[in-house]
Computed example of a mutant assay.
Amino acid sequence: MSRPTSHRQSAPRSGVGSQSAWRLRNIESLLEDLRVNGPATQRQLAERTGFSTATISNLVNILRADHRVRTQSVISSGRRAVLVDSSEVESKNVTIRASSGL
Rank of each mutant, 00 (worst) to 15 (best):
T41H: 10
R97T: 02
S77V: 12
R64D: 05
I27Y: 03
D33I: 09
T95G: 08
S18F: 09
D85Q: 11
G17L: 09
V60G: 02
R35S: 13
R48L: 10
H67M: 10
E32F: 15
P39I: 00
L31H: 15
V82T: 13
Q9E: 11
L59Q: 11
R35H: 15
S99Q: 08
G38H: 07
N37Q: 07
V69T: 05
S14K: 04
S73P: 09
G17Y: 08
R23K: 08
G15V: 06
V84P: 00
L102I: 10
S14I: 05
S77G: 03
V82R: 08
S10Q: 11
I96Q: 14
D85E: 15
R68H: 03
E90N: 10
S20A: 12
Q9K: 13
T49E: 04
P39A: 04
N61M: 07
R25Y: 02
V60T: 09
S20V: 13
V16T: 14
L31R: 15
L83P: 01
V89G: 03
A21G: 10
H67Y: 07
Q19T: 08
N61W: 12
N26S: 09
D66P: 05
Q44V: 05
R80A: 12
R80G: 15
D66K: 15
I27W: 03
N26G: 02
V89R: 14
Q42D: 05
S52Y: 12
V60I: 08
T71L: 07
V89Y: 05
L45S: 03
T95Y: 14
G101M: 10
N93M: 13
E28L: 15
V69M: 02
D85Y: 03
S77W: 13
L59G: 06
A65C: 03
